[in-house]
Design a binder for these strands. Structure first.
Lengths: 146, 146
DNA sequence: CAGGATCCGTTTCGATACTG
DNA sequence: CAGTATCGAAACGGATCCTG
């Protein structure tokens, strides 16, 4: 399943991978909202259909952005985590978040509990990105230990 | 045509606007490749179909990301430019470019004539973003004068 | 000839029901 | 819990046509 790209522009090729609503939504949920299981995604606010979710998870896995692991105790639960390649999308997600916070404020008044997060994000993007990545890596390691 | 968003998450709502392959491709072409006219987009490497292009341009216009102006001398040519809201997507585009440069290098060896651009981008993202925006604003003003 | 609009076959999406 | 199967709806895309 070698990726087929439509044209020679690197940016456009990147969009062949992440230029899709659900791809970035899933990455965002994993990175920011600590979603891990199929059920987490299905029950989320975004309410993706199960067949779409399965397809997108497979695609993300094929592209090496996420990896599926087994829940250490509960055998029938899978845990999805971002790979390093997936984690490298964090700056993109942060820019997306900041753009929405700036440009959709009239439509979506930022929720109280998120204000602090956005402020911190805007203040030092690089630090925020690192924090998100570190948090995710630690959660992943913790899940394998327990 | 008030935008309808699927859920309350700002990021997801942003994806209702820009979470589409063509939207970002068009913004990228305008910002980085100085594409201006319908013909420019159609003849580009990405080769979008005319009906799709017309729909996406209209959508971008409805969302206030681009604006259509008349070519000052050639009456039958329209010029599209990014608005300030559209220009504010520049950081996102830059992150996308950097991600693709880092993660798709094996598939898409960066073209020689782009190497310098990527290096400059990576060295100081903020400066690069400003340069792109400034360049676009100047081109827009120049086009109205001539 | 630029800038679309229309038609139409094909692909993808998405909601729900169902299965291991 | 973690997915498949199914099927109607929507989007895509190519070719062509229209309009100034």
């Amino acid at each position: 399943m070698a990726p087929e790209f439509r044209c020679d522009c690197p940016i456009t090729s990147a969009l062949d991978i992440v230029g899709d609503r659900w791809m970035l939504v899933i990455v965002k949920q994993m990175l920011i909202e600590d979603k891990r299981t199929f059920k987490d995604f299905v029950e989320s606010d975004e309410a993706v259909a199960t067949n779409i979710l399965a397809a997108k998870l497979k695609c993300l896995e094929n592209h090496g952005l996420i990896a599926k692991t087994r829940h250490p105790t509960n055998k029938k639960t899978n845990l999805y985590f971002l790979t390093e390649k997936g984690l490298s999308l964090a700056p993109l997600i942060v820019e997306l978040a900041l753009w929405s916070d700036t440009n959709l404020r009239d439509v979506h008044p930022t929720m109280r509990n998120q204000k602090e997060q956005f402020a911190s994000m805007r203040k030092d993007r690089k630090a925020f990105v690192s924090k998100l990545q570190r948090h995710h890596r630690e959660a992943m390691e913790a899940s394998q230990r327990s």
